[in-house]
Design a protein around this nucleic acid. Structure first.
Lengths: 115, 115, 115, 115
DNA sequence: TTTT
DNA sequence: TTTT
């Protein structure tokens, strides 16, 4: 009860969610989310940066995402940052940081009407 | 003005901040931050997970961090998620995700007294 | 540097923004924002609660709001909680709590196309 | 699933939590929380503003607060904004806005050691 | 790889 | 009404 680890994102999906059923019938979904921000440099010129995030969803949230979200959907996602390690094919350790979401708000008219 | 990319963390530094002056006299500081959460499993047993995050600070925030933070300090950090890529010594692409903080609140009595 | 006071809302405007120019040509805008949440009770029945918030914007954000937002617009608003007191016509003290926003993201297609 | 209503605060309690058992043995606790922010005006002078918030806790969180928090304690509180109305003794409607917290992190060494 |  |  002493730590806080929270991520909040609003952005568009870069791909359709990948969906999987794990052992024990647990659902997982994963997608890329692009967050785009504009800022003005000191010459008054507008620049745009895009950051890409890997969002992972479990259980009923994964089912919802698979059913209603698609490439291009606009969503609010809230969750926590989690860095996993794995061994690549050369046998060296690699790290990947993901956002494990526990809340999703669909911001597209389309998506919401379906709900 | 259409995206949101925000991370908020409360945790303890795992090391003293590494500090660097870049060209143009720009300050950068970097440290590892551990966020710890407890949860009860279905048998009522308490488990603890720790996530480690790389926090990067620029300019005056870097100076502050270098001056007042140290291994063990408790801080609130707020910023955005940023994934950089680089080529490792074998020439293959590697990715690293960092939290670029734009606000730090020092939560240690000690740190605050110094300020 | 020791406190945090942050509010984040996603909801729809309940009215067109009220806009005013104060002395010194400072812009202020104000609107009501409804945030709606659904939850299931212990009988599995879905309930919906709506909370209303007064959102206040200053300067260029006020101008933006006045130009692009209207009754029904969907927005993300971030800011801080502020309680003001005033004397009502009977001369007794009244309190009103507002969200002073420093960031607005327009989530309507319509609004964004105009920008 | 279309709205977001979230408040995050870091500050000190202005009083010991008031604690009550409601019908059905439900616990409620309430306290004032001060969030203090400093900023520099255009003359470089530092100013300090304090905002006061009413924080309400239910059930096990209320029990925790009553047990471990006291006047002066430093806490992180997260929850949602809720405006209630009531009739004052003159019979006119009054509104009060509270933060209904669903997460509390105790940031005092003291408090944490007790936990 | 998204969106405006 | 808090805290530094």
């Amino acid at each position: 009860m002493r730590g806080l680890n929270k991520v909040t994102l609003i952005g568009n999906l870069g791909n359709d969610p990948e969906f999987q059923k794990l052992e024990g019938n647990t659902s997982v979904a994963k997608f890329s989310l692009a967050t785009t921000e504009s800022y003005k440099d000191k010459y008054g010129q507008t620049h745009t940066t895009t950051d890409w995030h890997t969002v992972v969803l479990w259980r009923s949230l994964a089912d919802l995402a698979y059913k209603y979200l698609q490439k291009g959907s606009l969503v609010y996602a809230e969750g926590r940052l989690k860095t996993r390690s794995y061994d690549d094919k050369e046998g060296s350790k690699r790290y990947v940081t993901e956002v494990v979401a526990d809340q999703i708000i669909m911001l597209d008219k389309k998506a919401v009407d379906n709900e």
